[in-house]
Amino acid sequence: MTNPINSASLSTLASLGTMGTNETRTGKGNWFEAFGEAWGKALDTQADQITNQADIVSQGGDKPSDITQLTTESMRMSFMANSSHTSIDSVSKALETMARKN
């Protein structure tokens, strides 16, 4: 079982705070876009985990451990999707508040 939020995803998320206006002006996007992209990649990775485990089950892997693993991966996806929504929503509300104060 592989953790869907791997070191590359964490590295991408960690680097978001270092992106400044120069990156935005050069067309590389802004940190909010990078934040969403990092979440998208993490969710894609988890979706691949679910697909792989579903393939095992559909090819006769009907052991309780196989089915439990598929359930676990699906529940992890649900948790990650809720977390991504919550974090993106929180950041967008903070940006909106900052925009009103300027």
Rank of each mutant, 00 (worst) to 15 (best):
T2Q: 10
F32T: 05
K101S: 14
N52S: 10
D44H: 11
I88A: 03
W39R: 01
G20D: 13
F32N: 02
Q59E: 14
A54H: 02
A8F: 07
A47Y: 07
F35G: 01
T68E: 14
F35Q: 00
L70E: 05
R100E: 13
G17F: 06
A47D: 15
A42K: 00
F79R: 14
G40E: 04
T86L: 09
Q53L: 02
L70D: 04
A42S: 08
A38P: 00
K28W: 10
E33P: 00
M19G: 04
E37P: 01
T71E: 07
E33I: 01
S84V: 02
N52M: 08
S11E: 14
D66I: 11
M19F: 07
W31A: 13
A14C: 07
D89N: 10
M19R: 12
I50K: 13
G29N: 08
T68I: 15
I56S: 00
G36F: 03
A42F: 03
A47R: 11
E33R: 02
G61C: 05
S83G: 10
N30I: 09
L13T: 07
S78A: 03
G17S: 12
G17R: 07
T12G: 01
A99V: 11
T51K: 15
I5V: 15
G27K: 14
A8W: 07
S9F: 07
A47C: 02
N82S: 11
M19T: 01
T2V: 04
L16R: 01
S15V: 06
T71Y: 08
E33Q: 05
Q49E: 15
S78V: 00
R100S: 14
S15M: 09
T45Q: 11
E96Q: 01
T24Q: 14
T18S: 08
S58A: 13
E33W: 00
S74G: 06
R25K: 08
N102F: 04
L43G: 12
S84H: 09
E96F: 00
I50R: 15
W39P: 00
K28L: 08
D44C: 07
G60H: 13
S87D: 06
K41A: 06
D66K: 09
A14N: 08
S65W: 01
D48L: 15
R76K: 07
E73F: 13
S78T: 05
S11I: 04
N3L: 06
N6M: 04
R100G: 04
I88Q: 04
S58R: 03
F35V: 00
D89L: 10
M98C: 04
Q49N: 15
Q59G: 13
P4S: 15
E37S: 06
E73I: 02
D89A: 15
G17E: 05
M80A: 12
L16W: 01
L13C: 07
G36V: 02
S74K: 05
Q69E: 14
N52P: 00
A34N: 01
G20Y: 08
R76T: 13
G29K: 11
A94T: 09
G40D: 03
A42D: 09
R76I: 08
M75H: 03
G36Y: 06
S87A: 11
A81F: 13
R100F: 10
T2L: 12
L95F: 12
Q69C: 11
F32L: 10
N82F: 04
M1L: 08
I88L: 09
I67R: 15
G17A: 11
E23Q: 12
V57R: 01
A81W: 06
K41G: 09
D62H: 09
W31P: 03
F32Y: 13
